[in-house]
Simulated scan of single mutants.
Amino acid sequence: MVGYAFMGAAHSQGWRTVGRVFDLPARPVMSAICGRDADAVRTAADRHGWAAAETDWRAMIARDDVQLVDVCTPGDSHAEIAIAALEAGKHVLCEKPLANSVTEAEAMVEAARRASERGQVAMVGFNYRRAPAIAYARRMVADGRIGVLRHVRVTYLQDWIVDPEFPLVWRLRREYAGSGALGDLGSHIVDLAQHLAGERLIGVSALTETFIRERPLPAGAVAGLGGSGSGGAARGPVTVDDAALFTGRFGSGAVASFEASRFAAGRKNSLRIELNGDRGSLAFDLERLNELSFHDHTEPAADSGFRRILVTEPEHPYLDAWWPPGHALGYEHTFVHQARDMVLAVTEGTGPEPSFEDGLQVQRVLAAVEDSAEKNCVYTPVPA
């Protein structure tokens, strides 16, 4: 695995746990973890159960005891690492969004296509697909439980950069992150909307906004980013969006609305999606991870309304390997399920879902959103 911070820890949890929970045809061995800081990556290796620590990802990829490379770095290095790993004959799991641009994502897809001819697997890590409630919602939609899809509404709200003195971390710089709330949060909700709908978006109309345009540089950062000083503190420009709002249309004619913001005070990790069809509606809230809300519109009006489905039964996706009904799972279990699906894709030789092609399609939607927002004209009322 390349990267050892937040996503590195989450992915490590998945790899460390999956073989102890699921009966798999092969059990992952955590051979090596890689990062630039030798002391920090050694600490991460010891904490998370990796046998070795590396500071050069190229050397790690060259190891004979590595057959699969998990990329958990900022987006600016996804393409370089993933393509090199595929060309070295490794399977690849890459965090979302797949890349920082459509051009990079296209190159990754081409490398994955060549690798697939050699029996390699390349998957992108949209972990929320692996929440059992989401997986069950996909099954319900595919089974026609809500009928013909009409409308999808999705929001993903956080508040971790509301404070204008929060430092200029890599996620707020385009050269590393590609985009802001749009890529970080928007990629998740675009993927979920398309995954649950079972179809792709064909058009968007958007606006984005950056509320705080300069921030203090992190401790130890190099000055000279083009910002100003305030009270002696070096500052730099925020070069990504803080919030993105857009509407979309599916090929079937169903419509969708999306909102991604890191400026929603009080919202820590609030993702909600609702799908409305001519026979019913489904809703999921990440803060109620083990539940679905379902309305059956074919029932008599006097009896109808939303009801709660507790998704903890062994018949529900992934749950035959876990606890008795009613014993809830958490965020970290989505990474265990992701590791399970990756192992099965590798051992069974099946096409991984979501594939790099799926990641590229999401990247194209994000690019269309940015393009629409850039062209979106601002109406200035004429003074009376």
Rank of each mutant, 00 (worst) to 15 (best):
G253F: 12
C94R: 02
Q67T: 15
G178S: 00
S293G: 06
R130M: 12
S304Q: 03
R288W: 14
A219T: 10
I212N: 15
L207M: 13
E117Q: 12
R174D: 08
H316E: 05
L282W: 09
G251I: 06
D46T: 04
C72L: 11
L157W: 01
C72V: 07
H48D: 14
A85I: 06
D184H: 09
R288I: 06
D278A: 01
G19K: 07
Y4V: 00
P381S: 07
A368V: 05
E106F: 10
G305D: 05
H78D: 08
G232R: 13
E370N: 04
R279A: 14
S261R: 07
E87L: 07
L68D: 03
L286M: 07
A44K: 07
G119W: 11
P314K: 08
W57K: 05
T347D: 06
G226Y: 10
G227Y: 15
R63Y: 08
R150W: 05
A254L: 15
H11D: 06
A254Q: 11
A367F: 09
S293I: 04
A112K: 07
H151F: 13
F294M: 00
A206F: 00
L149T: 07
A264H: 09
L329D: 08
S187E: 15
M123Y: 05
P25M: 06
H195K: 10
R262Y: 13
V382N: 04
K375Q: 13
V148Y: 06
A112E: 11
D320I: 12
H337D: 05
L366S: 03
T380S: 13
C377L: 09
L172T: 01
H78V: 12
K96F: 12
E87H: 03
L289I: 12
H91M: 11
L275V: 05
R308Y: 02
F335G: 02
H333W: 01
T350Q: 00
D56S: 13
R16Q: 14
R213W: 14
S281R: 12
G89Q: 04
Y136A: 00
P317C: 02
D241I: 13
E80S: 10
I134V: 04
R308D: 01
P216Y: 13
R118D: 15
R308L: 08
R249Q: 12
H151M: 09
R27M: 04
V66H: 02
F6Q: 11
G248T: 05
W322F: 13
A367C: 01
E374Y: 09
R36I: 02
I189M: 14
A131K: 02
P28E: 01
S228A: 10
S304W: 03
A193K: 11
F126H: 15
D39N: 14
V311W: 03
E117W: 08
L245F: 15
V311N: 01
W57N: 07
R288Y: 06
C34R: 12
A301R: 08
A206G: 02
V369D: 15
T55Y: 03
Y128A: 01
G49V: 09
L225Q: 12
D191N: 15
G35A: 11
G305F: 00
M60V: 02
L271Q: 13
G349H: 09
A367S: 14
D184A: 09
R114H: 15
V66I: 09
D65W: 05
A84P: 07
L282D: 10
S281I: 02
V255I: 15
D320H: 08
G351S: 14
T208K: 12
G248M: 11
E259W: 05
A26W: 08
T103Y: 05
R364K: 15
